[in-house]
Simulated scan of single mutants.
Amino acid sequence: MNTHTPPVTNGNLLVAEPFLGDSNFERSVVLVCEHSEAGTFGLVMNQQTNLHLSDVIEDIYADVPLFVGGPVQQNTLHFIHRRPDLIDNSIRIMEGLFWSGDFDEIKRAVNLGTLTERDARFFVGYSGWSEGQLEDELEQKAWIVTRTDADFLFDTPSDQFWRGVLKRMGGEYKAIANYPVDPRLN
């Protein structure tokens, strides 16, 4: 395996090692939205719930899927999108990808159908690491760090996300993509 871990930056993906052993993050892919010396904030990209945004926000009328962003503060709502032209006060994560913004504009755009699941993803909760915690996990080889682009984030079905990221990385990672969840059942 590659022993060099690239530095974590906004827009990186943290790909859970196949045998991470943490049920919160098994086969998860976390988008890093904000990384600094103070800690890291991210959203799990591939844990879709059975709920829709309209189930948790009263004045939303569209059936936009809702994801679990992580185990922290699951009473909070977060969102990423690729439509800063529709949403003021968005925070740029990387080229073509934004986080947060004016929620009234989000609701209006979702209800009008100008903002759909093709351009936005909504999450309850988030993934968070305190100062130095993520670096410790990286040293323990709990995560594979890679880059991506906004198109991949929105165009890849959530149930194919973990494998899709690893296959895109190629080489040794392509082989990891096919590891069974429980190797004893192989």
Rank of each mutant, 00 (worst) to 15 (best):
Y173Q: 09
D155Q: 15
G11Y: 02
R83T: 07
P18I: 11
W162S: 01
S130R: 12
G170A: 09
R184F: 10
T148K: 01
S23A: 13
C33V: 15
L51P: 00
A142N: 14
A38H: 13
G128E: 06
R108G: 08
T146P: 07
L31R: 03
V44D: 03
A16C: 03
R168V: 04
I87M: 08
L153N: 03
E172L: 13
S130N: 13
S90V: 10
L66Y: 00
T156E: 13
Q47C: 03
T5Y: 08
H4E: 14
D155L: 11
M45D: 00
V29F: 04
Y126R: 10
D22P: 06
P157M: 11
D149Y: 06
D119W: 01
F161V: 04
F152K: 05
P6D: 12
N89F: 09
G125S: 07
F161C: 09
R83P: 04
I57L: 15
L86C: 07
K107E: 14
C33N: 08
L115Y: 01
I106K: 04
A142V: 04
I87E: 03
V124W: 00
R163M: 11
N89Q: 13
F41T: 04
V145K: 08
N75P: 01
D104F: 07
F161S: 10
V110A: 10
A120N: 05
I144E: 00
M1Y: 05
L185D: 11
H52E: 11
